[in-house]
């Protein structure tokens, strides 16, 4: 039996929730939340903590292109994710939403441009 601590971010309360988890990783106990929406968030955060990854990529000729994963990826893959992108260079033109890299680290999330880049004059 283990204890997992998760902070709920559903509202400014920031309840510190403690989950009791058995050997199989199943949640068997739950305490510290003050609402049921929070409980849902915390359970999801425990089972599958995910984050949207955002970063910038250098543009050939100068400047940066802001990018994001088009869906959240596992929290644990954030650092690996940026490292996988570290050597990429982008060449203009780029449209908002263009896929820069497909299926980042096999997560199913694409890395897409969040801004447009005009052709270099």
């Amino acid at each position: 039996m283990k204890e997992e601590r998760i902070i709920c971010i559903g509202c400014p309360m920031g309840c510190r929730v403690t989950l009791e988890v058995d050997e199989r990783g199943e949640v068997v106990g739950f305490k510290g939340n003050r609402c049921k929406e929070g409980k849902e968030y915390v359970l999801e955060e425990y089972r599958n903590p995910v984050r949207v990854l955002t970063t910038t990529l250098p543009v050939e000729g100068g400047g940066t292109l802001p990018v994001r994963t088009d869906r959240p990826i596992p929290k644990g893959k954030m650092r690996e994710g940026v490292r996988a992108l570290a050597k990429l260079r982008v060449r203009p033109p780029v449209s908002l939403g263009d896929v820069i890299l497909e299926d980042l680290l096999g997560t199913g999330a694409n890395v897409v441009a969040t801004a447009a880049l005009r052709e270099r004059r």
């Binding site: 949207v52 970063t55 910038t56 802001p66 994001r68 908002l96 969040t114 801004a115």
Partner: peptide
């Protein structure tokens, strides 16, 4: 460049540049 913009205004989780667009 991070997300968290527009959750209320657009009902979407956008990055700053996307919100600006």
């Amino acid at each position: 460049i991070h997300n968290g913009f527009g959750l209320f205004y657009f009902g979407e989780d956008l990055t700053g540049p996307e919100y600006a667009h």
